[in-house]
């Protein structure tokens, strides 16, 4: 099987599902002729035409609002927000309507759509192009939030998101779009919405991350491993909400130690929620306080300073070492 990058994995998933399900359509800014600014929708316009691949006016609120209408009428729109930094213009449609329609209509109307958006730092971009605000969506009941971390899980999870009966915000770590390749086994897909992936099993410490930080986390783990020979259990969260509490709790009960690595600002983020869950269900098993490695609570700095502020491999290494030695 050929190795592919994350963009190709996502692109292939879109090609495949559009070929097999004609209720799926794609829309957004520059997704058609241009194939998306990151080329995730490349070739779809040529293959499926303007009816199913819509270049829209620049109007995020109307893009999502129209997608909600399409979804209620039985289509499965896959919407692209060009960057997560511009997705807030559709927030009232997502929070005010997409997330609530099932509840409001007691299930008479549902909104099975996917909102894809590149997010995250480390690409030397302009303002609004580097944030990690998954918590905005995760704080909204009725919205599922999925973040792939690699080519192997990106395509399969996008497919699952499109098939899911609820609105899914699908956040793509743009730093990982083309930075590495993997084989993607479509036959043996074990990735599902709401399921974390235990990448490595071990008894000494649970290490949880998601998105682009997964790669840095693994690097840090390898560094500590080579020094100490410890056996970590590594969890790739994949779905932020609804969170796979069982996998987290079972792991922490076994290891008694935990480090959470999050690219976003420190306060009120998913790491805080993970720690709360551990506090609720595994407190008595802990042998050390749960550590989180995060960004600082400042507005995401532009790229001259960005690297100083984002969590680094050395920060993760230090947190793991200190938690092991506590």
């Amino acid at each position: 099987m050929a190795k592919i990058n994350m963009v190709t994995s996502l692109n292939t998933a879109l090609h495949d599902i559009m070929a097999s399900d004609d209720t799926v359509l794609v829309m957004g800014e520059d997704v058609g002729v241009n194939g998306g600014v990151f080329r995730v929708t490349d070739g779809l316009y040529e293959k499926f035409g303007r009816k199913r691949v819509l270049d829209t006016p620049i109007a995020e609120s109307a893009i999502l609002g129209a997608a909600i209408g399409m979804a209620m009428a039985g289509l499965k729109p896959v919407v692209e927000m060009q960057f997560s930094g511009f997705s807030y213009l559709m927030m009232h449609q997502l929070e005010g309507n997409a997330s609530r329609m099932r509840t409001r209509s007691r299930g008479q109307f549902t909104v099975p759509l996917v909102v894809r958006m590149p997010y995250g730092g480390g690409v030397r971009a302009l303002e609004h192009h580097s944030e990690s605000k998954e918590v905005y969506w995760a704080h909204t009941p009725g919205v599922k939030v999925v973040i792939p971390s690699s080519p192997a899980n990106a395509g399969p999870l996008l497919t699952a998101a499109i098939q899911d009966p609820d609105p899914v915000v699908f956040m793509e770590p743009k730093r990982s779009y083309r930075s590495f390749k993997e084989t993607v086994d479509k036959e043996k897909n074990t990735f599902a919405i709401g399921k974390a992936h235990v990448k490595e099993t071990g008894k000494d410490i649970t290490i949880i991350s998601w998105g682009a930080m997964m790669r840095d986390t693994i690097k840090a783990v390898e560094a500590v491993k080579s020094k100490t020979g410890f056996q970590p259990e590594i969890i790739d969260l994949l779905t932020i909400s609804p969170m796979d509490v069982d996998t987290i709790v079972a792991s922490v009960k076994k290891t008694g130690r935990c480090v959470v690595v999050q690219e976003a600002q420190q306060s009120f983020g998913p790491a805080s929620e993970i720690i709360a869950v551990i506090n609720d269900q595994a407190l008595m098993y802990l042998e050390a306080p749960v550590r989180r490695v995060t960004m600082y609570d400042v507005v995401m700095p532009l790229f001259a300073r960005e690297q100083l502020y984002m969590p680094k491999v050395s920060d993760i290494d230090q947190a793991i070492t200190e938690t092991l030695n506590f």
Binding site: Q266, Y296, D297, V298, V299, A304, R305, L308, Y309
Partner: peptide, 29 residues
């Protein structure tokens, strides 16, 4: 280059303990 910790100066117009504690951690690192 400008000082690395300037972003902490401009989060709020008031000095906040949460931010200053993080600045201290940032500078120590």
């Amino acid at each position: 280059p400008f000082a690395p910790d300037v972003p902490f100066d401009h989060v709020f117009g008031t000095k906040e303990d949460v931010i200053e504690a993080q600045r201290a951690r940032f500078l120590a690192r």
